[in-house]
Amino acid sequence: MGLEVQASNKVIIGIDTSTEFLKLGIAKENLIISELLLKVKDSHTRYLLSGLNFLLVNNNLVREDVDGFGIVIGPGSFTGLRIGLATIMGIISAWKVPAYPVMSGDIAWRANLGLIETKHFFYILDGKRKELFVMHYVKEKNSFKLKEDIVALNYQATIDIIKSYYKEGVTLIGNGINILRESKIKLPKKIKIIEGNVNGFTGGDIAKFTFDASAGQAGKIEPLYVRDADIRT
């Protein structure tokens, strides 16, 4: 099964600061040429620009070589997202290059397309406060479509929604899987889990799939706000 990635001969930098992993990558003509992964212990703000600079310098790229940024807008850690997005806003204001907002689940299914053999794909991420961010996709020909709005659910509600589809075949990706395991809630046996500790994709995957996942639409980049409960008075 092959994914027809939207053609691009451009150099795109992919960035994700939505989790504890700082993911950076460069793709040129839809090929990943370099990537960097760093588990950030404190704050992305201390590492993002040095990581980006490292990547550019090591690939002999300068400002004129960069055609745009693909940036994950969520769901995920709001603090991490704001650091990433604000930084890129500053860079694109200076460099006058476009930024393409992409959702993590949209990158995750593209990066794992050959491995997802089921009709349903759930991308589940730690949403903190005993909740998970849940993105539910359904297969359509050679791609997946987001079936419902992205939601923040408690652990049991997440399991319940997964169970309601598991007869049709379900695949899971994301750090929410480990959280469910640690919570001792039993996952249905027939579910396929794609393991991995970087939530299913790398910085290079973001760069590679940016055009496809954003439909080539550069635009205003803002974090994806999933729940109003984050507004605490």
């Binding site: 709001f78 704001r82 650091i83 604000a86 930084t87 500053g90 694109i92 204001s93 200076a94």
Partner: peptide, 19 residues
Amino acid sequence: LIVSLLVGLNFAKGLAYAG
């Protein structure tokens, strides 16, 4: 407010790096 400071700070850092 940390969450507010981070927006201005990182925008400034992006500008400083790029320029």
